[in-house]
Design a protein around this nucleic acid. Structure first.
Lengths: 197, 197
DNA sequence: AGGAATAGACTAACCGGTCGGTTATTCGGT
DNA sequence: ACCGAATAACCGACCGGTTAGTCTATTCCT
């Protein structure tokens, strides 16, 4: 039972999210958000204190969604490493489906704002940390299943996975070719599996 | 024998490079460049057609420098993989030395502008391609030296290296902790070396 | 003298944000 | 059930400041 005000609030938030994602935070104006959401200025400022507050709200929405995304990763079938590869591949497909545009919303925010806005930086960091935590759990399972050498530092490798993910998405976005991500996965899989033979 | 005009041209270029790097392209104004370079508006527009031309000039300067950077990588001592790890580590040190600010100038440009400016995107892509090409040569040598499994696709792995690099730099920039990059290298080294035992 | 280089006033569009006023919804008193 | 007050939601003109870019006037150097 959402009130009328709540609906417009969500509409603004969704529009801001989309535009920040596609065009960057600094490069989307309040007027842009107004125009595509069909909401008028006075109303937007009734629901949000300003552009910065919108930025925080968008980042919070990502942090909230992170949990369900990662739960899906854990609920899937297959071996631990297979589940990680599948996560990568699903994002490759998603990116491919939208013409390799946008990339990763968190990664975009991270590079654009980390040095400019410490409050944003902390929020972004929280998402990365959550990803690392979840990935590390899966990597520990992979080690137990002898999919990884016992010598591997799972925490460090979780960082590596996030880095490969973000870097891969960056390359897909600039090359406009989703196969780059496939190459990254393939190559990572290749050196990991070489351990077992 | 550089003329007076050429000196100011270089001064503008250097300032634009620095500001685009630290604050992003869209987020640095012509006035910002004017203020920090002490050059007056009419003079800047005498040397450059506009902001876009400045962007191209900055990207061209990166493409030019890329060659010497990669030559240095090839001229170093040590095994092929060691040289790659050292390249990563030198960037970690560099980032650490400047307080984990800035990150990778090409990566910043890539995420900010790939979807907004196709001309910029192509220039950025050219730099990534050059990196991949050089890395692939080194990876082929590594394969010959039995540092990598023969089954590895060196082209795909070159992509992976660039992805790890860019992703690692992103994490360092947002975490403000250079050790993340160290973790990425360590982890990569770990799974590669597991192949040899 | 004369072109290259520099200076800075000026413009029009756009920026984020404010504010006074209007309409829609909710709710207590009868 | 109905009315009126209170409040939630919405509207758009307006503000000071900034944006990229233009143009004319001046100075420097050969």
């Amino acid at each position: 039972m959402s009130s009328k005000g709540e609906r417009t609030r969500q509409k603004v938030l969704k529009t801001a999210r989309e535009l920040f994602y596609l065009n960057g935070y600094n490069n989307t104006s309040i007027d842009d958000i107004l125009k595509t959401s069909k909401i008028k200025k006075g109303n937007l400022y009734f629901h949000f204190r300003g552009k910065e507050a919108l930025g925080y709200a968008v980042l919070d929405s990502y942090l909230t969604e992170e949990a369900e995304l990662m739960n899906r990763m854990f609920s899937g079938s297959g071996s631990p490493m297979e589940r990680i590869y599948r996560l990568f591949d699903s994002s490759r497909k998603h990116l491919s489906g939208q013409g390799c545009r946008g990339g990763c919303p968190i990664g975009n925010f991270a590079l654009e704002m980390s040095d400019l806005h410490n409050g944003f930086r902390k929020k972004i960091n929280a998402v990365f940390d959550a990803w690392c935590d979840h990935l590390e759990k899966l990597l520990r399972k992979a080690k137990q299943a002898d999919e990884l050498p016992p010598s591997i530092d799972t925490k460090a490798m979780a960082c590596l996975m996030v880095a490969v993910w973000e870097g891969g998405v960056m390359l897909v976005k600039t090359r406009k070719d989703p196969r780059v991500m496939g190459d990254c996965i393939k190559s990572l899989k290749g050196i990991v599996q070489a351990y077992r033979v």
